[in-house]
Design a protein around this nucleic acid. Sequence first.
DNA 1: GACCAGGCACATC
DNA 2: GATGTGCATGGT
Length: 221
Amino acid sequence: MTITKQASPQINLALTAIYEKLYAFYGPQHWWPGDTPFEITVGAILTQNTNWVNVEKAIDNLKVHRVLNARALYELPLEKLAALLRPSGYYNIKAKRVRAFLDFIFGKYGGSVGRMKKEETRILRKDFLAINGIGQETADSILLYALEKPVFVIDAYTKRVLSRHNIIDVNARYEQYQNLFHHELDEDVHLFNEYHALLVRVGKDYCRPKPRCEGCPLSVH
DNA sequence: GACCAGGCACATC
DNA sequence: GATGTGCATGGT
């Protein structure tokens, strides 16, 4: 167990218990579901408010057309890109967002995700958030899962699980949720990766908008 | 057919 | 700072 830091014993205990229960129940999740840092980055944008199954269809389209790399995708006309992204929903907007991110990668790192990865985390996050279409969750997903930076990702599942367990108010801001993890847990990429993936898993299985708590490994309600 | 899905930007108050 | 709206496909 790598959870050791303790700013607030109560919260630390709760977060530790949740992680241990989920890990014991599900085991490792092997996230992100994508092969390369570039694929993960694109996936992070496409999955905004969208079922992952639909995102996979769009990613498959990019693979079939052999454009799932920075250069090829950047050279693809916006309308063609949008057409390939169609299954993931919001395809016109997402095409612009992917393009905006590519503008950034090519503008600052010559189109190299590897070069971008060497940049300081604080700088990257600030730059990402300045890109149109990249909000906090998307920025942090790219930082953690594509670039392996120790940043905890807060999404709808994370909020639902934590608020329903009375660890934090459901209306708390993104930063407040994130501080829970950053203040209580060691900044460990592997831990943050696994923990968030497990929260998504239990969120899909049990902690749904209409809760289905029977058999839930956290069984609190 | 309604509800939901690993958000975000923008307008308005 | 809080709230409302557009964006869109496909699964359950």
